[in-house]
Amino acid sequence: MDAQLYEHLHFRINGDCALLVDCGDGIDLFVNRKVVALAARIKKNPPTGVTAVVPAYRSLALLYDPLWTNPDLLEGQMATLASEPVEQALSETDLVSIPVCYGSEFGPDIDFVSSHTGLDINEIINLHTSRDYPVYMLGFTPGFCYLGGMDERLRTPRRKTPRVAISPGSVGIAEMQTGMYPVESPGGWQIIGKTPLRLFAPERENPFLYKAGDRIRFYPVTRDVFNHIQEKERA
């Protein structure tokens, strides 16, 4: 699909308390950065009646209280906010480093990824840790992030039978996507490793390690380092 940045925002009614604002079509870094920038501007200076803003790949949801505003008013306000250019370069966004122990019981599907891609395990680790992945959006479960920009050579389909329970911290691949499971959930991604970090800790002052618009970099750690970090995280 050819991704396209719209010249003007598109709006869609999403029930009586939400408006969807589309910045473009397709999964694309430039479209997404427009979404993230617009969401940040709205959050900084929310128009009257706006109760929440939820950015996604190409669109954001504006939640509103109909006692105070309506889509007509909001569409005008959004057009003004969106007219400012995206000023921040990608290299200036927050970079979050995530330690991962690849393979063995931490990454039970790494052998499948290896046989599917023809890469050996070291090549998989090298390719997976070789670049910074932009965080397009969070959703599915608390802290679950949709990352872009994985190396084409790592492309692997989902598992034929999804797992009933994937343990927190698992790092996986599904087609051209890669990401992490912050809480235990069912899932069909190929699990290649695990991070000892608590990606979502509801009782922590900041429960999350990253947000939409950040970049994530994975780096490989040994089992000993994994255990050491995990102990610290649990303390």
């Binding site: 999403n14 029930g15 969807l20 079509d25 999964i27 996604a56 190409r58 669109s59 939640l63 959703g139």
Partner: peptide, 10 residues
């Protein structure tokens, strides 16, 4: 569709 925000009632 391309994953997007949902609200209760959708």
């Amino acid at each position: 569709i391309i994953t997007e925000p949902v609200v209760p009632g959708n």
